[in-house]
Design a protein around this nucleic acid. Structure first.
Lengths: 341, 341
DNA sequence: CTGAAAGCGCTTACAG
DNA sequence: CTGAAAGCGCTTACAG
């Protein structure tokens, strides 16, 4: 049905091999022949069947993206579109396509990854997240399949190329920012504690406390998983504590926004009674009231770098493992102020 | 290198054909043989090469997604992740994968689409938008390639399966909502006027005016393209008009949020001086001050239905063209009020 | 500079 | 119930 290399050859009076060679713009084909063949292609509306090609050259020119969990609310987070934008930009430069996982559970995703890898659907994979005990990362590692991760691998980091922010450092920095504003009772509201970035951020948070002689209080550490669905109660609990926090380090702008809304219901003013600094710097953050002080983690760049690394790794397999640190910086707005005396 | 059907056959003492047949769970293969072959597969860690299979069965089990423009700000809009969530959910049910375009210009995207179609990368395509004079849609139509579109095709709608909101109706409805609040001078801030949904919404807007005996004023119609980068001036211009509007119908929450921010700089209070109803119902809308009255267009469902239709079309080619209307409804919050006397 | 042949890893009539 | 053969559409040594 579709027009093939044979048809083109027939029309141009050359062998299929020759057609294939002009397709690859092989230097040893005469200009005359090239012209003839190209004309025939034009006339027949020929386009190469990429599957057939892939089968023999063993390269697909596509990269696979493993998303955390496609049906979850994760996708609401601007992280995903932003990172994808970076990935697309870089992939396009090298004429690579993008293939997405659709799975809802880790098990499903793993199956898809296996299919991608063995089914020869992609040449390499970008993991959009890093969590502890990740079967998918283990699988990729054991199969020596090219991949890069956005985030710090919890294990085997020395054998994996990854792109990340310096989460320890930036969190330490923002915590110190709060400390300098006079806050001594600061709570940490983390995302899922299986996420490595949560672990790193907590570390930076603790460092800041320690270096500033502030005792670490376990009660002031909360994870998203615990709050899910009951942000309100959890917040009330924290705010009714004997030693109640005057500031919050929150892992995500969306959570921060929800928190602010609940706080207001409890007649707690932001930032007067409670300072908040969050992460991700969503685009509506500056229009909130108060506007959100938030860490811009440069998601787009994360995507760009991860793709560059992967593409490198695909072209020069088993070369050096890289680690790229993308700068993050706090965007100061109006959700923090000096602690009330 | 990779283990193939041959290797499995050798180990199980059967022909490659037989292995292939147990792969397809062919009914005429004895249980005994199936067992043997499956054991061999397990032992060798066999996984079928999907490319090879695709080449012969002429089906890829993947659907292509054409995004408006991957590097643009469009991706910031929650539309994209939300619609993708719906698509993924449905695709996964049928074991279909997702392939994304990465192009930045219509020309680039068209090339990618041609590659997808002729290169046999996908079995069908979902167009995430509908604009006037869309080369891509024309191409797909002329090649009789299975595709569905989210949005109303501007031309050839009778030959295309599509999923859309009733944009005329819903916009008429929200405009009447404003009219009932006493507004007579209502401006329409549309997105790109090449987008069909903009055209439809404007139509609904005009209908509402007409049926309520309000004269249509050309000066009160503004398109995003004109405002891009100079929202402020454009708004100032509108607000300084002799007959200045007291209400706005805005095509996108993000634009609305920006507008509100500028309005406030001009000491125009929302909603007292200016009522606003927007579209898309972004998740932070309810936390804005004032909270945003916005039309929930049910993006997720749009993705689900488009995928269902496409999958249908792939399995039963050239059957009936469908058109699905996904309900949209206004979520009333606090950005509108009665017009001041 | 070009062609004939083998092969990528699979599926599927055709026989038996 | 199973195998040998042809073929999907391409690429790439090997010859000449």
């Amino acid at each position: 049905m579709a027009v093939t290399i044979k048809d083109v050859g027939k029309l141009a009076n050359v062998s299929p091999s020759t057609v294939s060679r002009v397709l690859a713009n092989h230097p040893k084909i005469s200009d005359e022949t090239k012209r003839k063949v190209r004309e025939a292609m034009e006339e027949l509306g020929y386009h190469p069947n990429l599957q057939a090609r892939s089968l023999v050259v063993k390269s697909t020119k596509t990269i696979g993206i493993v998303m955390p969990n496609s049906t979850e609310r994760v996708l609401e987070n601007p992280f995903f579109p932003e990172v994808l934008r970076g990935i697309c930009l870089e992939a396009r430069k090298s004429q690579f396509g993008i293939y997405l996982t659709t799975g809802a559970t880790e098990e499903e995703i793993l199956q898809e990854v296996i299919e991608m890898v063995h089914g020869k659907r992609v040449d390499g994979i970008i993991l959009l997240y890093s969590k502890t005990n990740d079967q998918i990362m283990d699988y990729l590692l054991h199969n020596n399949f090219p991949f890069t991760v956005i985030g710090r691998p919890y294990q085997n980091a020395e054998r994996i190329t990854f792109v990340d922010n310096d989460n320890v450092f930036i969190t330490k920095q923002i915590t110190e920012y709060l400390i300098q504003l006079g806050h001594k009772k600061i709570a940490f509201i983390g995302a899922n504690m299986e996420m490595v970035f949560t672990i790193d951020r907590l570390k930076g948070f603790k460092q800041a406390l320690k270096e500033n002689g502030i005792a670490y209080q376990k009660e002031l550490i909360v994870y998203d998983k615990e709050i899910a669905g009951r942000t309100k109660e959890k917040l009330a609990e924290i705010l009714n504590m004997e030693s109640r926090p005057t500031a919050l380090v929150v892992s995500d702008d969306f959570i921060a926004i929800e928190l602010i809304s609940y706080a207001e219901e409890l007649s707690i003013s932001i930032p007067e009674d409670l300072s908040i600094v969050a992460f991700n710097n969503i685009s509506t953050g500056k229009y909130m009231k108060p506007s959100l002080t938030s860490v811009d983690i440069n998601i787009f760049q994360l995507g760009v770098e991860a793709t560059k690394c992967l593409l490198d790794d695909i072209t020069y397999p088993n070369s050096v493992m890289k680690r790229i640190t993308v700068p993050a910086k706090m965007v100061e707005r109006n959700s923090c102020c000096k602690v009330a005396e």
